[in-house]
Design a protein around this nucleic acid. Structure first.
Lengths: 263, 263
DNA sequence: AGTCACTTGTGAATGCGTTCACAAAATCGC
DNA sequence: GCGATTTTGTGAACGCATTCACAAGTGACT
């Protein structure tokens, strides 16, 4: 049935559902107060609260737009862009309208403008420093993964608790011991922590990150992390993704499925 | 939003059996309700369509329950389980109620029963065969990643388009050439395809998988896949996860952020 | 200028998912 | 047996997200 599952959580997942960002807010309606200066600025819209689902899709649009830009496309309609991103065009338009009015009726959107706006919105104009903790099987791959560096991020430090791994050079970086985490965070101004440790170590590492002021964490360990309010955790869990697929796989085989309606 | 419990350090840390959660009550009562459904109709519920978000969470509950089971916990309340899984307890109860009525009022849920029900629902009783296409940086790590095999899955084949990689042995498997994909799928009864190729190759591989009858795909390539109805695609995109964190990171710095609530 | 074809931006409608709140079990103590 | 206590299961309320549908803006062409 479903073409494509959104994340989540989210997405969620889990994440949204997927996961999804666990963010704690003061739980009361719309904590959007802010400076509230009369009505003036039209560009205020870009900064205010964006629906979580929209943020996730903006990143997708950005990727598609980059490809289009490379191909020399300068203008794109919501219909085209939505198709390429695998979403409904009305949905896309509403997403973009949250950033302000950057399209031209009858024409479409200028690719370059859109790229700029989205990058600005996602805060990709400055490169955030990422620390990767856990240089095992998966962490090793992540360290070398080009996709990280391509846009807006750079891995600034690798850490591991295993003394045997400390000193190893991976992707131009030397692995340091986990004990140095606080120092590393301060020295390198780490904004994002990526946890790729075994599950049993994840909460510990997480606590350390939080204690050192890191408020954005990407967790690859198969564990549920508890964090205080104000800390964002996103979870990537391979086993869970497979299990979700397994569920649908099973459903396809079963009687009573989409095509069968017993009387 | 999602009500994440502030870092209660003694919550349910895997390594820490510190008092609290551990509950070892004797498993008596009507332990064997499952064979003789008291109300008769409970069987039906397990097959009906489950909300997508619920499926994703079931996988999380399963993981938490496994940890509890290892610790010798036999009974758990929705409140406890929800806390350990990072969700609202009413949400959890509703999720579980979709599988039927397997709790006992005034007592809670039997861990073992719940594990069984969830595994059954997710179709984890049979091990599905997974083919991994693309044995580059990330694919290599996935092949060796223990988390895959741990429950319900086994990687049955590795493939790559690069002749230089064909023949290499990874995690007990020999890498075969992508051209053999159709043969591999038939021979090994592949149910799930995992794509870990570069972005430009992903759609091609996807099309081949679909053409060979695979209807469940996990995509690690940074590309949007187009698939026909009836095919499930789940996407794991590291760059997008980081960009979402980046957005929230930026928001925290801005005036009007969550911490600025003073009059 | 006027018409036509096209596309954005957005109110309204709909659907989905989460949370609340409470009645209905179940157990325990007496 | 009965009331106190606990906890499930669920109807109802709520909030967020998606989709629909269309008015309004734009350019092209005559």
């Amino acid at each position: 049935m479903t073409d494509q599952h959104p994340s989540t959580p989210d997405e969620a997942l889990p994440g949204e559902p997927s996961g999804g960002v666990r963010r704690a807010r003061a739980a009361l309606g719309r904590a959007v107060r802010s400076t509230l200066p009369g009505r003036g600025e039209a560009r205020r819209a870009e900064e205010r609260t964006l629906p979580e689902a929209t943020v996730a899709r903006l990143a997708v649009y950005l990727r598609v737009l980059s490809v289009l830009a490379e191909q020399g496309v300068t203008t794109v309609s919501s219909e085209e862009l939505a198709a390429a991103a695998g979403v409904n065009s009305a949905n896309l338009r509403k997403d973009l309208s949250h950033l302000g009015s950057y399209g031209t009726r009858g024409v479409g959107y200028e690719v370059a403008v859109l790229v700029d706006r989205i990058e600005g919105t996602l805060g990709l104009t400055r490169r955030l420093a990422v620390a990767l903790i856990g240089v095992g099987n998966l962490g090793h791959a992540l360290a070398g993964y080009g996709g990280f560096a391509t846009r807006g991020f750079h891995i600034a430090a690798l850490l591991d608790a295993d003394p045997a791994r400390v000193g190893e050079r991976i992707a131009g970086l030397t692995v340091r011991h986990s004990d140095e985490l606080p120092a590393v965070i301060r020295e390198l101004d780490i904004a994002i922590g990526v946890i790729a440790t075994p599950a049993h170590a994840a909460q510990d590492v997480c606590d350390q990150l939080v204690a050192c002021g890191v408020t954005s964490i990407l967790n690859f360990a198969p564990a549920v992390l508890a964090v205080p309010d104000g800390v964002d955790v996103r979870k990537v869990d391979l086993a869970i993704e497979l299990q979700i697929l397994s569920f649908h796989e099973q459903r396809k085989l079963r009687p009573g499925g989409p095509l069968e309606d017993v009387g």
